[in-house]
Design a protein around this nucleic acid. Structure first.
Lengths: 342, 342
DNA sequence: CTGAAAGCGCTTACAG
DNA sequence: CTGAAAGCGCTTACAG
């Protein structure tokens, strides 16, 4: 009952050879009109569709790109995904998305293995988890499939990379706080196993120092995997004798929890304490009750869009060397930071 | 330079036949220990990974499920996608997502064709666009790949379907308004080419009638593709002589625009006019400025989760007939509806 | 312009 | 337990 119609059935129905059927599908102009029409009719009558697996096997490419992302449902990805989709819309390549819940390396590897052999011609991988280092053996230019890494600058890896200037962005944020009269500034740093977090930390420190500001004891707090621990970090900061007047957080999700903590401690944000984030994320976790968070924006839409375009260009051989591109950031002023008036 | 290592290379390196290599991959216990280890070593040394396309071609299945959705970036899908991901996490099947921007039928068909032949064993398709009817020829039980439709009850199609009770949900919403003392209730209805919208309309009318309430002239307004036209629909309602005291909207996105219109007209929501939505969508478009919208919740997470599980069950032959399941809804009380006091 | 044939990389009865 | 061989459905030189 599961009748699978193959190219052979079409050939028989149309009274031609397999080769001819294949030609009307792949280069119609090379088949004489009359025969072509016969074959097209047979294809329609039988509802024939070429088997992708067989095709991929002989053609050595599939005209599809895979995108791997940590949690597809994470609102953080909203603009990035819109970028991927828009890029996809403008090529004839198929784009398929794979979601790796919580970034589990084993699952990520499973998907890479799945995609890497015969399923796609290229993959874009988002994220800068340290654990991704395990996966670099798939990504070399020796491999038949082209990789493009977003937000991940693994050293010694010759691979396409789209990065944002996290150090610069963190400097921008810190300078913004300093320009608003703050000198006692703390930092809540995210998961130390993600390169971005380290970079933002460095940008913060760097900017403080170049402004001649010293970091006080305990003025850098760490959260690990869970951004909601930003809540505890903020509480720790608030209990300090000389509590900071401003806090720069690694990302908006952490910042949103820092604000909650301040609010719950009876402080006003930003009047009593300013909080700054990073990412300019449109959607914050769990009904965020505070003021809109002043943040640093990264061009996620553009990055998503470019990643598909660049990969397609490479696959079409219009570009044959690895690309590395660093995107700038900018401060987006909202309501969580104000001038410090002692 | 693009050395592709095949099963043959492994066989040579290990000094065994192709068949033996294949066996250590597919049924290791059937190969004697010593040989198995040789082969495993060779696989590791050469970094061999089986080609999925070749494998799919002979095995006739790929252990993967495709999910097709209209706009992956749409916050509406947040919970649904979380459900898919969670379901995926619990099976060994690969799950890949395809996004069809704006639901373009041609693109949707392209993806279905792509998936349908050789790429996946099953596909779940979300959405109740009338235009999807074109695609039913792929979905019959005669086809080798199993389909599961969410929110789409195409008649005469024997296919797995997961539906929500839109009629019942709309009745619930309308009754909720009536229970709050409203009698002059209007309805703003969404895109008439989506079945859900028609169903919600019917639930509204039905509930009004069974409460002995007559629909007034012009009390049903229509928006088409763009939910932002809910803004105009609301304005039309407000200009009526005997303007409604409550408005039930087909979905929250529309409701959010209706609220904007009321607010801009100088009315208070809900004191001057109550607005009710549908979907209980966590994230509203474009910085929604109004009160939280009282709505009807559908169990999207559960539906996403169940869809993957059910499809996997079918593919494992644990279930061999089409499934149809209807999910209930419930009213979620928020701030956009209050008692009517003339 | 068209067909016969080889081959893509794998799996799986079939013998042994 | 192991190998030789056929075959999955397609594409593409190679002849004609």
């Amino acid at each position: 009952m599961e009748k699978i119609v193959t190219i052979r059935d079409v050939a028989n129905a149309a009274g031609v050879s397999l080769a001819t059927v294949s030609r009307v599908i792949n280069s119609p102009q090379s088949v004489r009109d009359e025969r072509r029409k016969q074959v097209e009719q047979a294809i329609k009558d039988l509802g024939y569709m070429p088997n992708q697996a067989a095709r991929a096997l002989v053609k050595r490419h599939t005209e599809t790109i895979g995108v791997i992302v940590n949690n597809l449902h994470d609102p953080f990805f909203h603009d990035l995904i819109r970028g991927f989709e828009t890029g996809a819309q403008q090529t004839s390549y198929n784009v398929i998305f794979c979601s790796v819940m919580n970034g589990d390396v084993a699952v990520k590897e499973k998907y890479i293995q799945y995609l890497n052999k015969g399923m796609v011609d290229g993959v874009v991988l988002y994220g800068s988890y340290l654990s991704d280092k395990e996966l670099t053996r798939y990504m070399s230019y020796e491999n038949a499939v082209r990789y493009l890494l977003i937000e991940n600058d693994l050293p010694n890896l010759e691979c396409n990379k789209l990065l944002i200037d996290n150090v610069g962005g963190a400097r921008l944020a810190t300078q913004y706080l300093i320009d608003h009269g703050h000198t006692n500034i703390a930092h809540i740093c995210g998961n130390l196993n993600r390169r971005v977090m380290i970079d933002r930390f460095n940008g913060f420190v760097d900017c403080m120092h170049s402004n001649g500001l010293e970091l006080r004891d305990g003025s850098v707090q760490y959260t690990m995997a869970e951004y909601s621990t930003g809540y505890n970090s903020m509480n720790t900061l608030l209990q300090q004798k000389d509590r900071p007047t401003a806090v720069f957080c690694s990302d908006d999700a952490i910042a949103s929890y820092a604000v909650r903590a301040a609010l719950n401690a009876g402080l006003r944000v930003p009047e009593d304490i300013s909080v700054m984030g990073f990412d300019n994320q449109a959607i914050l976790p769990e009904k965020y009750p505070g003021p809109e968070i002043t943040s640093v924006e990264q061009p996620l839409f553009q990055i998503g869009y470019d990643s598909i375009r660049l990969l397609v260009d490479q696959l079409c051989d219009r570009v044959s060397f690895p690309i590395k591109k660093v995107y700038g950031t900018r401060v987006v002023e909202k309501q969580s930071v104000c001038f410090w008036r002692p």
